[in-house]
């Protein structure tokens, strides 16, 4: 019974923090992009403009919610949710802190430590794509359809690289449990050092996976008038918008867990963390949040630096460059493992 309550509390807290994270992301996106362009960005709403995301949200709520006549209604209404929900669900298996003891119970800082942790995340990020594809398809007009189609092709190409990059991590860990992966990294060093190639590949792939520039073919304002969400307005559009940020947070947390040691605090061993008790847990959570935040910042930074890829370049990069390198990396990992064993 106690466990269920703990899990419920965790769900609420993690959901709340992720939602807050989305708001922070929106704020950062606007402010950082402005700063990179020598502007100031929104700084009027609240101190330093911190309430801007709330103002944005209120604005979206107030807008008229237009459902065009020609859409496939139920899919059209469903697809923002299909995009948003998996992005939030993915967070569930990510360990974001050191487990701590409370009343004799060990409370894991993770909602569910599934034994197929990574597969689950891969599945969730892929399902999110249905949101885009269905959104584009059900809109029943040409630009959203193109955006949706592009996203599906892009996903297939980059999911592969992403999966293969993870495979080499799995080979080194020998487990799909997210907690095992973190424990392995704390013992033998972070995977960013042990699998640098996989790290870079994975990093590139998650940009494509979350449809961020330079891979935002699905939106591509200049070509597709906004892509899959052209026909959406008001809160439904906001859902797409928030879904994008939610998946950004999820994959940033994922890459942190897989390659940057998750909640491991640099230069502090597990024993030292243990001796800190609850503070050790907090420290580990802080470390996790900092690393995730770094990746989110890089997301934003890259978006406002790089131009968009052309579609054929995108495909060429995915299939002809990243995929062979990923395969090579797996072979390399296998050989090295065989040699060292």
């Amino acid at each position: 019974m106690f466990n269920i309550w703990i899990t419920l509390i965790q769900i609420v807290v993690v959901f709340g923090v992720t939602m807050l994270g989305i708001m922070v992301c929106i704020y950062l996106e606007r402010r950082v992009s402005a700063f990179l362009q020598d502007r100031l960005g929104p700084n009027r709403t609240g101190p330093k403009g911190l309430l801007q995301p709330i103002a944005d949200g209120i604005k979206f709520f107030m807008k008229e919610d237009i459902i065009p006549d020609f859409v496939i209604r139920w899919l059209y209404i469903l697809s923002p949710g299909i995009l948003m929900a998996p992005a939030l669900l993915g967070i569930a298996v990510i360990p974001f802190g050191k487990p701590f003891e409370l009343f004799g119970y060990t409370i894991p800082m993770q909602i569910a430590d599934l034994n197929i942790g990574i597969l689950y995340i891969l599945a969730m990020t892929s399902i999110g794509i249905y949101g885009l594809v269905l959104g584009g398809w059900s809109s029943n007009s040409k630009y959203p359809l193109l955006g949706g189609l592009r996203s599906s092709a892009q996903m297939i190409s980059y999911e592969l690289t992403m999966g293969l990059a993870i495979v080499s991590v799995l080979m080194a860990t020998g487990s799909m449990l997210m907690s095992d992966i973190v424990a392995e990294q704390m013992q033998n060093g972070w995977f960013i050092w042990r699998q640098p190639l996989a790290f870079v590949l994975f990093w590139i792939a998650i940009f494509a996976e979350t449809n961020r520039l330079p891979f935002d073919m699905t939106e591509a304002e200049q070509e597709l008038v906004g892509g899959y969400h052209t026909e959406y307005s008001s809160m439904k559009f906001a859902m797409f918008f928030m879904g994008e940020y939610a998946s950004m947070i999820t994959v940033s947390a994922l890459i942190t867990t897989l390659f940057l040691g998750g909640w491991a605090v640099p230069f502090v061993s597990l024993e030292t963390l243990d001796s800190f008790g609850i503070w050790g847990t907090l420290l580990s959570v802080a470390s996790f949040v900092a690393k995730t935040g770094f990746f989110i910042l890089v997301y934003i930074w890259v978006r406002w630096t790089l131009p968009r890829f052309r579609y054929d370049q995108l495909m060429r990069l995915g299939w002809k460059v990243l995929l062979p390198i990923a395969l090579f990396n797996i072979v390399l990992t296998g050989i090295l493992m065989a040699v060292w064993k």
């Binding site: 700063f35 990179l36 100031l40 700084n43 406002w304 630096t305 790089l306």
Partner: peptide, 21 residues
């Protein structure tokens, strides 16, 4: 080239902003 580009944008991040409030 990408890293070079990102360094350029980073430089702008710390520049004096030209916005007049």
């Amino acid at each position: 080239a990408i890293l070079q580009g990102m360094m350029i944008t980073l430089k702008h991040f710390f520049r004096k902003k030209i916005t007049i409030e």
